[in-house]
C-alpha cells in the first residue's frame, strides 16, 4: 500500500510520494480494518462452534457409559475414556460386516468411476470434437434428474439382471451420480496441465496412450487422488439408494444398518454415537490428505462450467 523509500533502479532519484492525508486517511482506515477483523474473528469462532458442536458432542457421548447418558443429573463430560460402546459395536452388532460391504461397494464405485472417468475427461479436456460442448452440458444435466426417476427403473433393471442386493449392482447405480461429477472434476485438473509435455513426448515417438499413461497421469496424480476421495465419500455416505437396493442378508451398507439400529436397540445412544464416529473416521482422514487439491477441484468442476 504505502510507498517505501527503498526505491532502486532508474527512478530511484524520484522522491517517494507521500499519500495526501485528505483522500487517504490511513489512521482511520486502519481502525476500520481492525474493526472488521474483530467482527470476522467473532463470526468465524461462532460458525466453527456451530459446525463442530454436534460432532464434538457425539464423540463425548460415544465415550460415556449408558448410566452417564441417561442419568437425571446431566453429564457433560464422560468420567473416563470408556470404550465399552465401541466394544459392543464391534462384537455384538454385525457392524463390521456392514462396514466391509460399504468398503467393497465404495471400492468398486471408485474403480469404475475413476478409470472410465479419466479417459473421458482427458478426451474432453484435450480434443475439440463434434458434440463436445453438448456432451459436457449433458454430464451437468444428469445431476438434475430426480433420483427416484433413476432409482425405480434401476431397481427393476438390477432385479432382471440378477444384480439386486449385490455389491457390484449397488456400485453400478452409484456411478449414475458419481461418474458425471468425476468427469467434470478430472477435466478441470487436466485443463490445468499444459499440453506441451505430451507433445514433446509424442515427438520423441511415444504413442498417444503412452503419453497419457507416462506423462499426463503422473502430473495429474494429486487431482486424481482428490477426485478419488470425493467419489469414495459419496459412495461411502449414500443411504437412500442402498435402503431400496440391498437387504440384511446381502450387500447392506453401514448407513442403512445404522439407521435400522436406531429402532432395533431402542436408542442406545452410546453405541449409536460410537458407530457414527467409526464410520466418519475414514472420511475425515481422506479429506485431510487431499484437502487442498479437493477444494480447487470442486471449484473447477462445479463453477467454471
Amino acid at each position: 500500500m504505502s510507498v517505501t523509500a527503498e526505491q532502486t533502479g532508474p527512478f530511484s532519484h524520484v522522491p517517494a510520494i507521500e499519500p495526501a492525508k485528505s483522500w487517504m486517511p490511513f489512521g482511520s482506515l486502519r481502525r476500520i480494518r481492525r474493526f472488521y477483523d474483530v467482527v470476522a474473528a467473532i463470526v468465524v469462532v461462532l460458525v466453527v462452534l456451530f459446525a463442530m458442536g454436534p460432532i464434538v458432542w457425539t464423540v463425548l457421548t460415544s465415550f460415556k457409559t449408558e448410566g452417564e447418558i441417561v442419568s437425571r443429573s446431566f453429564t457433560w463430560l464422560p468420567k473416563s475414556l470408556n470404550i465399552e460402546n465401541y466394544q459392543t459395536l464391534w462384537e455384538r452388532s454385525g457392524y463390521p460386516r456392514l462396514l466391509r460391504n460399504s468398503a467393497i461397494v465404495t471400492g468398486l464405485t471408485v474403480l469404475m468411476s475413476i478409470t472410465i472417468g479419466t479417459v473421458a475427461a482427458y478426451s474432453i479436456s484435450r480434443y475439440r470434437f463434434r458434440g463436445r460442448s453438448g456432451l459436457m452440458i449433458f454430464y451437468l444435466v444428469i445431476r438434475m434428474f430426480p433420483f427416484t426417476l433413476l432409482l425405480i427403473p434401476l431397481f427393476i433393471m438390477l432385479r432382471n439382471l440378477g444384480l439386486f442386493d449385490s455389491h457390484f449392482g449397488l456400485a453400478l447405480t452409484y456411478t449414475t451420480f458419481l461418474l458425471p461429477l468425476c468427469v467434470w472434476m478430472l477435466k478441470g485438473f487436466f485443463d490445468g496441465i499444459p499440453p506441451d509435455l505430451e507433445e514433446a513426448s509424442r515427438v520423441d515417438g511415444s504413442t498417444r496412450l503412452g503419453a497419457l499413461v507416462r506423462i499426463v497421469l503422473p502430473l495429474a496424480r494429486q487431482g486424481i487422488a482428490a477426485t478419488t476421495v470425493f467419489i469414495a465419500i459419496g459412495a461411502w455416505n449414500e443411504y437412500v439408494w442402498a435402503l431400496l437396493l440391498t437387504t440384511a442378508n446381502g450387500a447392506r451398507t453401514w448407513p442403512v444398518g445404522l439407521q435400522l439400529m436406531v429402532g432395533e436397540f431402542q436408542m442406545p445412544w452410546g453405541v449409536l454415537s460410537a458407530s457414527g464416529i467409526i464410520s466418519i473416521i475414514p472420511i475425515i482422514i481422506g479429506f485431510a490428505i487431499v484437502q487442498r487439491a479437493l477444494v480447487s477441484g470442486l471449484m473447477a468442476g462445479g463453477v467454471k462450467g
Binding site: P54, I55, N237, Y239, L258, I283, I284, F287
Partner: peptide, 11 residues
C-alpha cells in the same frame, strides 16, 4: 467449517 458438508446424512 466444511466437515459437516462431508458427513453422511444418516450420522
Amino acid at each position: 467449517v466444511l466437515i459437516p458438508w462431508l458427513l453422511p446424512s444418516v450420522v
